[in-house]
Design a binder for these strands. Structure first.
Length: 403
RNA sequence: GUGAGAUUAGCUCAGUUGGUUAGAGCACUGGUUUGUGGUGCCGGGGGUCGCGGGUUCGAAUCCCGUAUCUCACCCCA
């Protein structure tokens, strides 16, 4: 027997219902915010992610499905969605066109990780990207959208917020931090020693408890923002307060993708185990330029659909459509014909065998039909059909042409 | 990538110190109450016990390997 590859799941039945329910809900809300759907390829040039997401990130550094195709191109399955959307944005010359462009997408992402609950090798994200808006109101609007989507799905959560600063405040801060960590360099973990060379900011994110205690007094980026970033962050908090969106400031929140600047946020759930991040995003004003486009401010987020599926509160199922059956073999060809006609407007389940009424009612109940319509020998004689409303328990026999 | 624990019917799980034809509930399916369901009664099908080796007269049970899942680390959605 051939099984699916490790960390790659099939989505069907109840899971599929949850999956599509989430996508439909999120799509509706994204459209209300003025976003348009974009589909980008699953396969892209490796350079896109190396340059876009950053080689120092784990995602690009060690988790990509990378290979050489038959045309000798260095390609990989996308590990995240933003880089591809930005590539498309630049390729369609929307950076030069100016104005604002807002997109949402959903689809499979691939990361070669060790699977566990809430962590798959092929997983699905729903994400949005907004280009051309510098205002922090757009950042707030992103957070509100995530908030709305989670609320619509009945998902409880906590919002963690930080500001990563811009290039103006970042480089002096980076130096400050490096100096601080250098003083304790011999005590930090191996990862941190490496991070000091590659991406010093990430040491703040270290889960090692000794490292954390060493960094208690480390300079915080949030206290070293330039005046513009400081104002933006203050404004963001005010906007969220005014809209009753609760948040926690997490000064150690550093997004795993290198392209983020200024606003960074993460929505977490306490109910799905250690893989607790259900949505994450922030501003990435420099990415378009990194990928050879015209400098364009941008902000976005992504949500992990599989993780959300565990938390979604599905609406109660209601009875819909018809179940049609025959109690007389001579009525079989007739019910096939009626079913075909009825299916132009309604969902219809059909039983191909003649059975007694009890069997049909049971079957109709099982497929959750609202109406059970039956033709037996009596109905066949009079050209009528017996219809029972399974919800209200009312029944009547009507003429076939009125059905 | 590191550590630990699981894997028996479609699902959830029993299986007693290794010992005859491996069980239950639910699900599926058939009959029945002679045309009224979601909550009757009686029956039936379905498992080479994850896979591959080994120990043994004999392995679901003990040992080794392997795959997958789960949990934690790590990382992140």
């Amino acid at each position: 027997m051939i099984n699916s590859l490790r960390g790659m799941n099939d989505i069907l039945s109840d899971d599929y219902e949850r999956f599509t329910y989430f996508i439909n809900t999120a799509t509706t809300i994204a459209q209300r915010y003025g976003f348009h759907f974009i589909e980008t390829p699953l396969l892209e040039e490796t350079a896109l992610f190396k340059r876009g997401v950053g080689e120092s990130s784990d995602i690009v550094g060690k988790e990509m499905y990378q290979f050489t195709d038959k045309g000798d191109n260095d390609v990989c399955l996308r590990p995240e969605g933003t880089a591809g959307v930005v590539r498309a944005f630049i390729q369609k010359k929307l950076d030069k066109a100016g104005g604002t462009h807002r997109f949402f997408y959903h689809g499979a992402m691939f990361r070669y990780e060790r699977p566990q609950k809430g962590r798959l090798r092929q997983f699905h994200q729903f994400g949005v990207e907004s280009f051309g808006v510098e205002s922090v109101y757009e950042d707030a609007s992103m957070i509100m959208m995530v908030h709305d989507i989670l609320k619509a799905c009945g998902i409880g959560h906590r919002l963690q917020l930080n500001s990563l600063g811009c290039s103006t405040c970042m480089s002096p801060y980076r130096q400050k931090l490096i100096n601080f960590v250098k003083d304790v360099e011999d005590k930090v973990c191996q990862d941190c020693a490496r991070r000091l060379q590659t991406n010093p900011i990430r040491v703040l994110d270290c889960k090692n408890t000794t490292c954390q205690s060493l960094y208690t007094d480390a300079p915080k980026l949030i206290n070293n923002l330039c005046s513009e970033c400081e104002d933006d962050f203050a404004n963001l908090k005010t906007i969220l307060d005014q809209n009753n969106i609760k948040y926690e400031i997490d000064t150690n929140l550093v997004r795993g993708l290198d392209y983020y600047s200024k606003t960074a946020f993460e929505f977490v759930s306490d109910n799905i185990g250690s893989q607790s991040a259900i949505a994450g995003g922030g501003r990435y004003d420099r990415l378009v330029e990194f990928l050879d486009g015209k400098a364009t401010p941008a902000v976005g987020f992504a949500m992990g659909i599989e993780r959300l599926m565990e938390l979604i509160v599905m609406p109660e199922k209601t009875r819909t459509g018809y179940y049609i059956g025959a109690m007389d073999e001579n009525a079989l060809s007739l019910i096939v014909k009626i079913t075909h006609k009825k299916r132009s407007t309604d969902k219809v389940s059909l039983d191909y065998k003649a059975k007694n009424l009890q069997k049909h009612l049971k079957a109709a109940d099982k497929v959750n039909a609202k109406f059970c319509a039956i033709i037996g020998s009596n109905e066949l004689k009079d050209a009528t059909i017996w219809v029972k409303d399974l919800e209200n328990k009312t029944e009547s026999t009507i003429k076939l042409e009125e059905f």
